[in-house]
């Protein structure tokens, strides 16, 4: 585990307020949610900023949980699919939420395409797209409404950025950064 003090110094230097590495099961998301709220209240953050950070955190975390639940993962892969990393940090007066998880190689192109499309849209377009999806029929068996990314894009103050790293056995590690 290395020098704990070193880790603390690193975290402080990066402005990291909270970090979590583990399974993104619903119960854990609830607890993290409570923790995030309390922590941000303690930091005397503006309520609107707090709401934004909370929004992004919930949407990102629930995306990971939904992906794990719907991907028909079996055996040990399931645990891997559920595992994610979450970091909430501050840069100046902006907050950063970074979320990473394992994604099947075949799913990555679709995901990146969507993100790229969102990145190129103006707020009014994002809103229109959001409204359109909001009133559309949800395919049966879906856990979510497919609106999470759009909402994150609308809440963010800058386009969503991402990075992908190839892992073994047809998996890639996908990480998303949202600046609020």
């Amino acid at each position: 585990m290395g020098d704990l003090d070193q880790i603390r110094r690193y975290l402080a230097s990066e402005g990291i307020l909270m970090s979590f590495n583990g399974p993104f099961r619903h119960s854990i998301i609830e607890e993290l949610g409570k923790a995030v709220r309390r922590h941000l209240e303690a930091e005397a953050v503006r309520k609107s900023a707090m709401a934004d950070v909370f929004t992004v955190f919930i949407e990102a975390a629930q995306n990971v949980a939904a992906y794990a639940a719907q991907g028909h993962w079996t055996g040990p892969e399931r645990a891997q699919a559920e595992t994610g990393v979450l970091v909430i940090g501050r840069r100046g007066d902006r907050y950063l939420v970074r979320c990473g998880n394992y994604v099947r190689s075949q799913d990555t192109p679709g995901l990146l395409a969507r993100l790229d499309a969102l990145a190129g849209m103006a707020p009014a377009d994002l809103k229109a797209l959001y409204k359109e999806r909001l009133h559309a029929e949800v395919p049966p068996g879906a856990l979510g409404a497919g609106l999470g990314l759009i909402r994150m894009a609308r809440t963010a103050s800058a386009p969503l950025s991402y990075s992908v790293a190839a892992e073994d056995a047809g998996l890639e590690f996908f990480s998303l950064t949202v600046t609020v």
């Binding site: 919930i58 949407e59 629930q62 409404a145 609106l147 999470g148 759009i150």
Partner: peptide, 8 residues
């Protein structure tokens, strides 16, 4: 707070 699915 409502997540997007709840909003839907």
């Amino acid at each position: 707070y409502l997540n997007t699915s709840s909003i839907k």
